[in-house]
């Protein structure tokens, strides 16, 4: 089941060679290590670009997003089997 979350998170990511690679995020004081970035796409809210990442941890799938204007990260949704 997909669950809509839409909550702010802190993310540690590598910004290098024109790429962003999120490595882990902190949500509700817990740390989640990202094993794989499985998908990436871009959208805009008004004129603000947003980058979306599908990521997996050991057990769970998450979609997180990065606002290129505010530099805020958000946990958009997760999937629980």
């Amino acid at each position: 089941m997909y669950v809509l979350v839409k909550e702010p998170i802190s993310v540690v990511a590598i910004f290098s060679s024109g790429k962003i690679i999120p490595r882990f995020f902190i949500w509700k004081k817990r740390k989640y290590s990202i094993e794989e970035v499985t998908y990436l796409w871009r959208t805009k809210i008004g004129s603000v670009p947003i980058i979306h990442f599908s990521v997996t941890t050991e057990k769970t799938f998450y979609e997180i997003s990065y606002n290129l204007k505010s530099f805020n990260w958000q946990l958009e949704k997760l999937y629980v089997a």
Binding site: E36, T38, Y39, S54, T56, T60, F61, E63, Y79, A81
Partner: peptide, 11 residues
Amino acid sequence: SVEQVSNPFIR
């Protein structure tokens, strides 16, 4: 298919 590529848990 896009969703299955995105999410390995539903492949």
